[in-house]
Every structure is written in structure tokens, then in C-alpha cells.
Amino acid sequence: MLHTQPSQDIESRVEFGYEELGGFMSAMMGDEKHSLAATSTLDVIWTLYDRVMNVDRDNPRNPDRDRLYLSKGHGPMAYYAVLTAKGFLEPTDLAGFGSYNSILGHHPDRLLVPGVEISSGSLGHGLPLAVGAAIGIGIAERMGRVFCLLGDGELDEGSNHEAIAVAGRLGLSRLTVVVIDNNSSILGWPGGIARRFEVEGWTATTVDGRNHDDIERELTGHRSGSPHVVVADVGAHRD
């Protein structure tokens, strides 16, 4: 892990734990106590920021940082909650969620939200962008990895399959995809999601999408020479 210069105001930096995330999500959604289990992406995003990714809120554009490209931009409350816990957002940013002057919309905008790498919402755009970023980091010979989070329903979009093929053929070992599998693909993926990646030359694994230790192990377990996909099984529900 690369360590950057700590900023002057490091004393004033406040970070929050996993148990605070429900409160942050309630602040956005106006419900009394938000159920973390109802949010399919929360555990993966939390584990990425808490244990896996090299990111620094005080140096958010460090060229050697790890990037999260949240392609599944729908339902971004878990993302905003984690960004708040990790100091990219203030808890006071959450209250106006979705209102005209809020920086936090129902789909994230990278030009508005600190720490957000891509603007997303329309399905099937994050992975091709992540492939371009991984190629760029390779040309620049930088350290960073690109993590890209998709939904299993989003995988229906054909643009993903263009990107899966390109990443596999080019051997983009800096790229790790997480597919949050909540069985929301209407026509399904016979033979499993992981197979779609493996035939294109990716390494693939499937984990319990709620188990932080398993997620951490698989997200750091990629081998060199090929892109890696982690299918995070979170059971069948919608969010």
C-alpha cells in the first residue's frame, strides 16, 4: 500500500464504523431505522473502502489510488453512507438527498460528489469506462487498481459484454469487477454469471456477498495477467 503525506487537519478527521451506516441511510431516506440487509451493495462497498482499497480523502486524485467505478448507480444510498463514514462526505450532506440543491442525487455525479469516480445511472456504462481507465493506468505505469461494481440485472446490457471481451483479451490485470447478484436478471444467466467472464479469460470466484472476510479475501486474491471477477451472492431481493 502506498502512503501519502497526511494532511494538516488529520486530527479533525472523523471516521465512522459499519454500525453507523444504517443511521446515515435513514438520514437520506427519512425512515426511522434502515435495515442494512435490504441494501444489496452495502457490504461489498463497505469492505472495499474499509479493508481493500487504497484511497485517501485528503488526496482524492492521487494517481496511484485505487478507483471504484460504481456502474450500478441506481440506489446509491449505501455508497453515500460509506463515503460519509470514510470522511469524503459530511453527515450534514445527507439530509437533502435528492433535493434540487443537494450534491447527492438518486444517481451519483462525479462532478458534484467528492470521491466519486464516475457519474452513473444508465446501466452498462461503468465497465467500458473502467476498461479504459485500467488501460490508461497501465500506459502511465501507475499502481492503482480499478474496481467496478455491477448488478446482475445490469449485466443484461450488451455494452458489458463488449467490455468483458476487451478486458480479457488485453489481459487487464489491474481490473477487478464485482457483480452483486440478487437474482434480478429477468431472463437469468444459465450456467452462472462467472462463466461469462471465465470464457473471456478472466479469473472468477463467487462469494457470500454479506461476509466481509470472504469479500476481502476474494477482492485481494486476483492473480497477475488477467482481470478478475467476484460474484457476490446476496440472495434474491430488490433494492
Binding site: A130, G136, I139
Partner: peptide, 20 residues
């Protein structure tokens, strides 16, 4: 990127985000 025009623009976008 081969005959993949959606990926062609997406890849260009990712490269531009990396400063290219």
C-alpha cells in the same frame, strides 16, 4: 477494441478520466 463501438467510446472516456 475490435468491432465494439460502445466499448470504443467507453474506453476513450476511461482514458480521458486518467488524463489522456
Amino acid at each position: 477494441v475490435g468491432i465494439r463501438e460502445q466499448a470504443q467510446i467507453g474506453v476513450a472516456g476511461g482514458l480521458a478520466l486518467e488524463g489522456f
